[in-house]
């Protein structure tokens, strides 16, 4: 990247801006700020930021509405900040088109990791990478082959589809509904018990320690996230 990526932080709490701004600057981002949803919409249109950090608890606008409106004309990555006990709100935001979420309160390292992942995905969107490599795990999508530390892992077709879908979104959270719709089809979007069974089987096959997974992480109540080591 020739110019620093520009982050628009939308939050009505000055304290959040106060600690996020230096942290973002220290990570070589340029920082834009908005305190209200209406201002944020204008700024996204006028300044075309590279990524958006949106606090869902805005006073003047429902965060989901904002995401929906932005998605009508922009695919800028959006990371939402939300209280931990508001799973429904997070799932709704993700389904509206948000790319990822961070629970409030959060450590700044976590937010930076989410920003990096989202920005990388945005660049990858232009050309699919056929081989995804995650910490010793290699997933060759066109040849439907998975290797763990160079030795081949045998997966059933559904297990492979599931892993490939997670790998395509490596580092990002994917909701149960997104996975079920993509892997099993729209008719199965509520059959989370399939998903639990297959995730369990996959973990048995690819995780060094299935009871403390390090690749496929559970986001309780929301979905799964394939760890992104790159």
């Amino acid at each position: 990247m020739t110019h620093p990526a520009r982050v628009l932080v939308i939050d009505d709490e000055p304290a959040i801006h106060r600690f996020l701004t230096p942290a973002l600057l220290a990570n070589d981002y340029a920082v834009l700020k908005a305190e209200k949803g209406s201002d944020a919409l204008r700024q996204i249109a006028a300044d075309a930021p590279d990524i958006v950090v949106l606090d869902l608890g805005l006073p003047d606008m429902d965060g989901k509405d904002l995401i929906t409106r932005v998605r009508e004309w922009s695919d800028v990555p959006i990371i939402v900040l939300s209280a931990r006990d508001r799973e429904a709100e997070k799932i709704a935001a993700l389904d509206c088109g948000a790319d990822d979420f961070v629970n409030k309160p959060f450590g700044v390292g976590e937010l930076m990791a989410r920003l990096r992942t989202a920005l990388r995905h945005r660049m990858q969107r232009r050309g699919e990478t056929p081989v995804v490599s995650v910490g010793g795990l290699e997933i060759d999508v066109p040849r439907r082959r998975v290797t763990w530390q160079r030795s081949e892992v045998s997966l059933s077709p559904k297990e492979f589809d599931l892993l490939a879908f997670l790998a395509r979104h490596a580092g990002k959270v994917v909701t149960h509904r997104q996975i079920l719709t993509a892997v099993w089809g729209p008719a199965h979007e509520h059959d989370t018990q399939y998903l639990r069974v297959y995730v369990g089987q996959l973990r048995q096959k690819i995780e060094p320690n299935p009871s403390d997974p390090c690749f496929i992480l559970t986001e309780p109540g929301i979905g799964y996230r394939l760890l992104d080591m790159t």
Partner: peptide, 12 residues
Amino acid sequence: NRDWVDLQELSD
């Protein structure tokens, strides 16, 4: 918000 919970995963 009920969903299917795997007690093995939960305990781990």
